[in-house]
Amino acid sequence: MGLNYNKFEKTCKILEENEFDKSKLISILQGVQEEYKYLPEDILAFIASSLNMPLSKVYGVVTFFSFFTLQPKGKYIIKICDGTACHVKKSTGLIDAIKKKLGLKDDEILTKNMLFSIETVACLGACGLAPVIVVDGVVYGQATPNAVVRLIDNVLKEEKEK
C-alpha cells in the first residue's frame, strides 16, 4: 500500500502504544518524526486532537526542542559543521559550493526534487578533521568544495541507477 497510508498507520500505532497519553507527547513526536523525517502540520493537528490537547501546546513543544523540525527533509541529509574549528577552515566555502551545486537560494534548505536537504550544525565534535560534512550519517573530514561536489555527483549517480 502507499507511503502515506503506511506513515499514517504508523502514527496511529505510535499513539496507541503510548496509550493516547498526553504526558508522552515527546516520545510520540519522536516516533512520528522518525517516520516522516519531519513533523507535518496536519499530523500535528491529528496528534493534538487525539491527545485531547490544544494544538498550540503541541506546537510549543515542537518549537522548543531543536531536535524537532517542521520543515520537510530530503532523502539525503547533508550536515555541514560550522563550529569554530570548521569555520576557521572555511566551512562557509563548503556551504556555498553545496548550495550552488544543489541550486539552493538564500534560506532554502531542501532541493525541489526532495532528494537533498542541508543543515548547518554548531559542532560535530570532530574538530581534528575540520572542515567536516556528514552525508547520510557518513562523516567526511578535511572536505574541499571540489570533494563535496564529487560526493553529491556520486549520490546522484547511485540514485539514477536505482
Binding site: 510549543g60 518549537t63 522548543f64
Partner: peptide
C-alpha cells in the same frame, strides 16, 4: 487554557 479550556494561544520557541 485553564479557565476557558481552549488553548488557542501558546508559547513557541525558546
Amino acid at each position: 487554557d485553564e479557565i476557558q479550556g481552549i488553548g488557542a494561544l501558546g508559547f513557541a520557541n525558546r
